[in-house]
Design a protein around this nucleic acid. Structure first.
Length: 749
DNA sequence: GTACATTCTCTTTTT
DNA sequence: GAGAATGTAC
């Protein structure tokens, strides 16, 4: 007789629903714990139950628990679930409710605000967005006379970001690391960048964590305060943490060691932005005696889907090793299908969706998961034709829109005049005669005196350095800001103030005067911004919110097919999942392999694994022999991941011999493959390390095609070359019209 | 300083 | 094919 059945009343409901491993993960509260939770194994249930358990057993108050997630969405979800379990709305209590539940960045920002002065910032520092970062780096590059064509600011900026991800301040970056980038001056640029941020009273995303580390390392008293506060620490999606986040956790956990990290190394797909799977692997080393619990029973997918996913991920080497299993049997096999081109693929997906729909399946339970954003287009086109309801998740976000950023910039300068980046953004928007020349003057003075642009402006209007016109225009702008700043200090209603600013600055009028079709929409967005501000009440709180909560507004409800990238699908599940574009050159994406080699390939494989494990009942994998990428036709071969799908779990639906039952493209079908290397495309061929036929644009020998020559292309037939350069041909086809194609896909006619 | 045209690049993922 | 960045004409 087990303890549970002997004491039925003593076991709270939230524990009864758990399987033994889950329950152990919930009840092992004291001491370090690593929970390896495979896809669909009830990870969220464990996390929330654990929080509830800590509260229910009176081990800690909500304010003594630090719960860290990776996305705002996950944080909101956890708040909801815990709230439902403890019967209170913890989300509504906001930060004042005492909960320390949020993303790494929002929690770090919250801590940093309290101690900003220790790292040389003011309490009201601004959080820069990516735009600001790049703009700042660009200025520094220009000042150093570094060719920003050769070393684009975004590249240099992302190098700096990666350093920050690793917890490296400029003085800690190993000297050899910068390499050629920015003429070897990258570390110097980084140093200057940090200095500028201090003057600007700003912090970028990486700084939020980095400054926390500096703070904890230089002020043991402050760290001790948080040791005292946080009795228990919980981390979700631990495989996505970068080194800085890891160090942050380690510092906070070192006193009590009540750290529980939940993650899945097989779902680590953010290596490109600094995530370190190694953090999971070293957990036991850093916390000796740590308990490791594996959650392997999958409650989501059918056995075939699980079998397929498991087989794919088994090809990865650097794993802690988990085997997902399910007690369910039967279900459909994973359908695998070859297509002639992307259009055919989209047509097929559309047909399958309509068939499912007729069989009573809800559109809301179907998703199309793609590798890259551009793939959504083909599906959108098709669904519009069919009249199928769909929504694209991801894409441009509200806060990223030009008009929103501009409006926010006005608000930022009002709340924080030293915010030079925001100031720069709107000095001449709407046009007020303060162009490049004026801005240069402002910059020169600001740099020379080490003051903000705004302060430099105040001095300039009292000098006669500017032309009278620019000078009076600048004075007017500064006067306006002075007035708004006074209203802000007098705690005027934030929404009203924003409205006033946008009107008086002429910003609203600028869009009203614009006669483009999207102008009305932009004005609508501005109104929406103001009403959002109304809910917040306080301007600084609002600015903090929009810089940290950078996600889309909740998708409109309704029964629609979801289209999104594999990355944004992580954590979601659907009855039916379509996985198109499983081709070499797309998945795995050559870029990932270029940058990180074998490790990059493994991350791509995890992406495939994440895709498959989103499906509850049905998964469809497909690939196309021809695809138009960057307006160039490219032919491609099936992804090596296709050949990693075990026969017993898949059902091959071949189309007109495009993909033979032997598991590869047939070579002799109606002249379909004249440009492909000879040989049969068996799955075993594809699996090898040295991939015999990469589908990335082939450089090949210098094009034998000169303008005027006749050529043959497998898709478009015969045509005449109009122009040829760098492997690209501009061809006038006899039937298909004028197209640009790679020269490796045509042959002399 | 501004408006327009042309050129060029880039298309992986996002807190 | 789109968007940014640059170049050119006013």
């Amino acid at each position: 007789m087990t303890a549970e059945s002997a004491l039925p009343l003593a076991t709270p409901a939230y524990l009864q629903k758990l399987n033994p491993q889950q329950r152990q993960a919930v009840e092992h509260v004291d001491g370090p714990l690593l929970v390896l939770a495979g896809a669909g194994t009830g990870k969220t249930r464990v996390l929330t139950s654990r929080l509830v358990h800590i509260l229910a057993t009176r081990r800690a108050w909500p304010s003594q628990i630090l719960a860290v997630t990776f996305t705002n969405k996950a944080a909101a979800q956890m708040k909801d679930r815990v709230g439902a379990m403890v019967g209170r709305d913890i989300a509504g209590e906001g930060q004042g409710g005492g909960w320390w539940l949020g993303t790494f960045h929002s929690l770090a920002a919250r801590i940093l605000r309290r101690h900003a002065e220790h790292v040389g910032l003011k309490q009201n520092f601004t959080i820069l967005d990516t735009d600001d970062q790049v703009r700042l780096v660009k200025q520094l590059l220009q000042a150093e006379r570094i060719d920003d064509k050769k070393w684009p600011a975004r590249v240099v900026s992302s190098v700096i970001e990666r350093w920050k991800d690793r917890g490296l301040t400029p003085d800690k970056v190993p000297a050899g690391e910068a390499g050629e980038i920015a003429d070897g001056k990258t570390i110097e640029i980084y140093r200057q960048y940090q200095e500028r941020l201090k003057v600007l009273n700003g912090a970028d995303f990486g700084d939020l964590l980095l400054h926390n580390l500096t703070l904890f390392q230089t002020r043991p008293d402050v760290l001790a305060e948080y040791h005292e506060r946080f009795k228990y620490i919980l981390v979700d999606e631990y495989q996505d943490t970068n080194v800085a986040q890891y160090l942050w956790l380690r510092l906070l956990a070192q006193a009590r060691k009540n750290l529980c990290c939940v993650g899945d190394d097989d779902q680590s797909i953010y290596g490109w932005r600094g995530a370190e799977v190694g953090n999971i692997l070293r957990f036991e080393k850093d916390f000796p005696g740590a308990m490791v619990i594996r959650l392997e029973e999958n409650y989501r997918s059918t056995s075939h889907i699980l079998g397929a996913a498991a087989a794919v991920i088994a090809h990865n080497r650097g794993r802690l090793g988990k085997t997902l299993w399910t007690s369910s049997t039967g279900g459909d096999k994973v359908k695998v299908r070859a297509h002639w081109d992307g259009e055919a693929e989209a047509r097929w997906v559309g047909e399958e969706i309509e068939t499912l729909q007729r069989a009573g399946q809800a559109l809301g339970q179907m998703a199309i998961l793609v590798r890259a954003g551009f793939q959504t287009r083909e599906f959108e086109d098709r669904f519009i034709t069919l009249g199928l309801k769909y929504r694209v998740i991801g894409g441009p976000r509200f806060y990223e829109r030009e008009e929103i950023r501009d409006a926010v910039a006005y608000l930022r300068v009002t709340a924080q005049p030293d915010d030079g980046l925001a100031f720069e953004r709107i000095v001449n928007k709407p046009r007020r005669g303060l162009g490049d020349a004026t801005l240069q003057t402002l910059h020169r003075l600001a740099r020379a005196e080490n003051i903000s642009l705004f302060a430099a402006g105040l001095r300039l209007v009292d000098s006669d350095e500017l032309k009278p016109q620019a000078r009076s225009s600048l004075r007017r702008l500064l006067d306006d800001f002075g007035r708004w700043q006074r209203a802000f200090s007098a705690e005027a209603n934030a929404a009203d103030l924003a409205g006033t600013i946008l009107d008086e600055s002429g910003y609203t009028a600028m869009w009203q005067a614009e006669r483009t079709p999207d102008a009305p929409g932009r004005l609508e967005n501005l109104k929406e911004l103001i009403s959002a501000l109304e809910e917040f009440g306080s301007l600084p709180a609002f600015l903090e919110h929009i810089s940290l909560v950078m996600e889309n507004a909740e998708a409109a409800p309704g029964d629609m097919v979801s289209v999104m990238t594999l990355h944004s699908a992580k954590g979601l599940e659907f009855d039916t999942v379509f996985l198109p574009g499983w081709e070499e050159g797309l998945l795995p994406h050559p870029r990932a392999v270029e940058e990180k080699g074998e490790a990059g390939l493994e991350e791509e494989r995890r992406l495939a694994h994440v895709g498959l494990t989103r499906a509850r009942h049905r998964a469809y994998v497909s690939f196309a022999a021809n695809r138009r990428i960057h307006n160039l036709w490219q032919s491609s071969v099936p992804s090596r991941f296709v050949s990693e799908l075990p026969q017993e779990h898949i059902e091959i639906q071949s189309e007109s011999g495009l993909w033979g039952s032997s598991g590869g493209f047939a070579e002799d079908v109606g002249g379909l493959t004249p440009s492909m290397p000879p040989g049969r495309y068996r799955s075993t061929d594809i699996q090898g390390k040295a991939h015999p036929f990469s589908s990335t644009p082939r450089k090949g020998p210098d094009a034998p095609f000169s303008p005027g020559s006749r050529v043959f292309h497998q898709k478009f037939g015969y045509g005449k070359v109009i122009a040829a350069e760098a492997g690209k041909l501009d061809i006038e086809f006899d039937k298909a019209g004028r197209k640009k194609v790679m020269d490796s896909f045509v042959q002399p006619a």
